[in-house]
Design a protein around this nucleic acid. Structure first.
Length: 403
RNA sequence: GGGGGAGUCGCAUAGCGGCAAUUGCAACAGACUGUAAAUCUGUCCUCUUCGGAGUUCAUUGGUUCGAGUCCAAUCUCCCCCA
């Protein structure tokens, strides 16, 4: 894996890069749809490829380990072959489940014991075990096993948690270096910065992570209950320390606004369940704000989704050819307004969601992911054009609107 | 015509002397950030200064300190027999 930093904005930390993996190149900034159990919920892969143009998707170690389990994944030849996704994959380590399944687990030095949410069976995740599992899954990017510290933790707990994450990282690195990829393609290991909402800890953690000379760095433990401005501050503190020539991945974030703010602060990679989960719950993200398709007001809005959502929005079709297309052309597919958007009216989508028709969940999920990918692609073009900050400040108020 | 059963807040239900009244659906909103989520929460008779106040359980009358609950009549609906 290699990362080329192609451009940094003059007036901010915003960056444009290209991440090369054995399964393809990833232009950055990038948004990575979450495919926890080996599937981006409600979205076909041809839709991810053709309509959304997702460059990389996630899988989750905890979920895939529990089901289908390691035997099947090994027999299948890894997750790429198991689910047929031939573009890059990233696996989260299960660190987030240590946080989100807090009632069912116990953290110790050795690792984390937890009970399966599926059948209640007891399991132990250690850094070594997680590395082994991620080797078997075979993602292009593996995440270190960490503790995702709650946003309201006190300094004492946050310090101990961070130090534990660092010790676990060391063990991850040892195991990682002692093992080989199983399926013939390179795997990178990204360590994760922790430190909760404390600047000193974040700085310390970022320095520790940077000292390991990783192929990429992740920022974890944010958007877990702390105020948004604290999150932005933590990103600033961390990106100031992390190596500039490696990709930075802000884990689990976030809203479109969060992503733009983080891009401006030098973050390259994002993932979040928000576009898919909120989509399944009827919330559509658009360049003009969010809308709840379940609201009665949409019942008789017969305009195609595209007319409402993509009206007056710049797309690559309007791209100024004077821009550095040598860079742009190698990373940007032509912009597609998702077919689902152009075909269906808001009224129909309102009906589908209310009637609990599966198609409604699919359309909303596809739409939201297409929007998120549009957002990062357009951010990228503006960074290259030197107009990112201007574009961002123009877009932010619209994103916060409720349609 | 005879016999039996039933009418509760949009619909369906609970209720068996202390009730503004159970639950589900529907409706109206909200939440959702490395997915235990096609999930969850709130409102859902009227008014409210959110403390309450006022009207309700087919209709009318009665028994009772107190009635959606007991009694009577009336109206409506369902089932069975003619």
């Amino acid at each position: 894996m290699s990362f080329s930093l192609l451009h940094t904005a003059a007036d901010s930390q915003a960056r444009v890069g290209l991440l090369h993996t054995d399964h393809g190149d990833i232009p950055t900034p990038i948004f990575m749809p979450v495919g926890t159990a080996g599937s981006v919920k409600a979205v076909h892969q041809h839709e991810l490829r053709n309509e959304i143009d997702a460059k990389i998707i996630l899988g989750n170690t905890y979920h895939l380990y529990l089901r289908p389990g390691l035997d099947i994944l090994r027999q299948a030849g890894g997750l790429h072959r198991f689910n047929g996704w031939n573009r890059p994959l990233l696996t989260d380590s299960g660190g987030f489940q240590v946080f989100s399944l807090a009632d069912n687990r116990k953290i110790r030095e050795e690792g984390c014991t937890f009970r399966s949410h599926i059948d209640g069976s007891k399991h132990l995740f250690t850094p070594e075990k997680v590395m082994d599992i991620e080797r078997i899954i075979g993602a292009d990017i593996m995440m270190a096993f960490d503790e995702c510290c709650p946003g309201d933790a006190d300094h004492r707990y946050a310090l101990q948690s961070m130090q534990l994450t660092h010790r676990w990282l060391d063990r991850c690195l040892v195991r990682f270096s002692q093992t080989e990829p199983l399926y013939g393609h390179h795997q990178a290991l990204f360590p994760i910065v922790q430190g909760c909402q404390y600047e000193d800890l974040r700085r310390q953690s970022a320095e520790y992570i940077a000292s390991k000379n990783p192929e990429g760095c992740a920022i974890g433990g944010l958007a877990v209950g702390e105020p948004t401005d604290v999150m932005y501050r933590m990103i600033e503190v961390v990106t100031a320390v992390l190596p500039t020539d490696r990709p930075r991945y802000l884990m689990g974030v976030g809203t479109p606004q969060n992503i733009l703010e983080a891009i401006e602060r030098g973050v390259d990679m994002f993932d979040c369940v928000m576009p898919t989960r909120n989509g399944r719950n009827g919330l559509l993200f658009t360049p003009h704000g969010t809308l709840n398709i379940k609201n009665h007001k949409w019942a008789s809005c017969f305009h195609p989704i595209a007319d409402i959502v993509w009206a007056d929005v710049e797309t690559e079709q309007n791209e100024d050819v004077s821009q550095p297309h040598s860079i742009a052309s190698q990373t940007d597919a032509p912009f597609h307004i998702p077919a689902s958007d152009s075909q269906y009216s808001l009224s129909y989508l309102h009906h589908l969601i209310r009637a609990q028709e599966i198609l409604g969940l699919q359309i909303c999920s596809i739409h939201n992911l297409a929007f998120y990918l549009w957002l990062v692609r357009t951010a990228r073009r503006h960074i290259l054009a030197g107009t990112f900050s201007q574009w961002k400040s123009g877009l932010l108020p619209a994103l916060s609107r409720r349609l």
